[in-house]
Simulated scan of single mutants.
Amino acid sequence: MEPQNLTGISEFYLLGLSDDPELQSLLFELFLSIYLITVCGNLLIILAVSSDPHLHTPMYFFLSNLSLSDIGFISTTVPNMLVNIHTQRIPIAYEGCLTQASFTYLFACLDGTFLTVMAYDQLVAICQPLHYTIIMNSRLCGLLVLVSFLVSLLDSQLNISMVSQVTFCSDVEIPSFFCDPSQLLSLACSDTSTYTILMYFFVVIFGGVPVFGILYSYMQIISSILKVSSTGGRYKAFSTCSSHLLVVCLFYGTGIGEYLSSSISSARKGAVASVMYTVVTPMLNPFIYSLRNKDIKKALRRLLRR
């Protein structure tokens, strides 16, 4: 959906993370390093999964899609911030701001839905191992990825269509390094009570349903693990889903922390908290999966030898 400018303004002003000129070069080097590490790490995961026949399974298929989503997530915010720091150009066009906010919604929701799909995959693998290959066939895996993308696209378009209907005053300053969707409504001049209610409704639907799906899956997984008689069997079953559980806690933990920080503290502290959610989490995901997964480490070694 093409964003429509109903405000009469042509640009917003991104205030960034700090006003200190001495920190600009340090921030540039830090975020450039994080961005390169994130892109390279997730690309290695994708290449390892695609090149190794042993990893052509539903779990690693979903993992490669999660890595692709993480690349898109961090690429939505960091490159523009690096350009702004390097050129000292703070303004961002109205259409560009809404586009960035739209992609932020898209990839954030896509990460959540992929984590939910991966939780379901773990549920089938642990609770119904004999029927795993039948249930998690290639057709179902492709359908789950397609549905995840369509749901995330719907969430993005619904939220950004609301923001595009809001009237902003002139010289709008966003106390963040990107067009944070949670801050755009608070900067509007018109009444946003209806849009705020709708936004919370969308959060409950597009965010709450995946969380419920993950919680339900792990309740069933834990119940099945506790029924295993041997300690070694319990450990093996738990280690199978430990990496995914850690990524889930990191993703939703930083997301809740970013939301609480922006609600109860200053806007600038909320911007610092959003770094964890939008930048640090996509960087850590490939490390969590590669360091805690023997199959990934073997595939990466074979890939690097080539």
Results as ranks from 00 to 15, higher is better:
residue 2 E to M: 03
residue 2 E to Y: 08
residue 2 E to S: 12
residue 5 N to K: 03
residue 8 G to P: 03
residue 9 I to R: 07
residue 9 I to G: 07
residue 13 Y to C: 01
residue 16 G to V: 07
residue 17 L to C: 05
residue 23 L to Y: 10
residue 24 Q to W: 08
residue 25 S to P: 00
residue 26 L to I: 07
residue 28 F to G: 06
residue 29 E to R: 07
residue 31 F to H: 08
residue 35 Y to Q: 05
residue 37 I to A: 10
residue 37 I to H: 01
residue 39 V to A: 01
residue 41 G to I: 00
residue 43 L to M: 07
residue 46 I to C: 02
residue 46 I to E: 09
residue 47 L to I: 06
residue 48 A to N: 03
residue 51 S to K: 15
residue 53 P to G: 11
residue 53 P to H: 08
residue 55 L to S: 01
residue 59 M to T: 06
residue 64 S to Q: 00
residue 68 L to D: 05
residue 75 S to M: 13
residue 78 V to F: 05
residue 80 N to G: 11
residue 87 T to I: 14
residue 87 T to H: 04
residue 90 I to Q: 09
residue 90 I to V: 07
residue 92 I to T: 14
residue 93 A to S: 11
residue 99 T to S: 12
residue 100 Q to L: 00
residue 100 Q to R: 01
residue 103 F to H: 11
residue 106 L to C: 09
residue 107 F to R: 00
residue 110 L to D: 09
residue 110 L to W: 06
residue 111 D to N: 15
residue 114 F to V: 10
residue 117 V to C: 11
residue 122 Q to Y: 11
residue 127 C to F: 04
residue 132 Y to G: 10
residue 133 T to M: 03
residue 135 I to R: 04
residue 136 M to F: 10
residue 137 N to V: 09
residue 141 C to A: 14
residue 142 G to I: 04
residue 142 G to Q: 10
residue 157 Q to R: 13
residue 162 M to W: 14
residue 163 V to D: 08
residue 170 S to C: 10
residue 176 S to E: 09
residue 178 F to G: 00
residue 178 F to L: 00
residue 180 D to Y: 06
residue 182 S to R: 14
residue 182 S to C: 08
residue 194 T to W: 04
residue 195 Y to R: 15
residue 202 F to L: 11
residue 213 G to P: 04
residue 215 L to N: 05
residue 216 Y to M: 13
residue 216 Y to I: 12
residue 217 S to Y: 02
residue 217 S to G: 05
residue 222 I to W: 13
residue 225 I to N: 08
residue 226 L to D: 15
residue 230 S to A: 07
residue 233 G to R: 12
residue 234 R to K: 14
residue 238 F to I: 13
residue 238 F to P: 02
residue 241 C to R: 02
residue 246 L to Q: 11
residue 249 C to G: 07
residue 256 I to D: 10
residue 257 G to Y: 11
residue 258 E to R: 05
residue 261 S to M: 15
residue 266 S to K: 08
residue 274 S to R: 06
residue 277 Y to W: 14
residue 280 V to Y: 12
residue 284 L to R: 00
residue 292 R to Y: 14
residue 292 R to T: 10
residue 294 K to G: 08
residue 295 D to M: 02
residue 296 I to N: 02
residue 296 I to G: 02
residue 298 K to V: 07
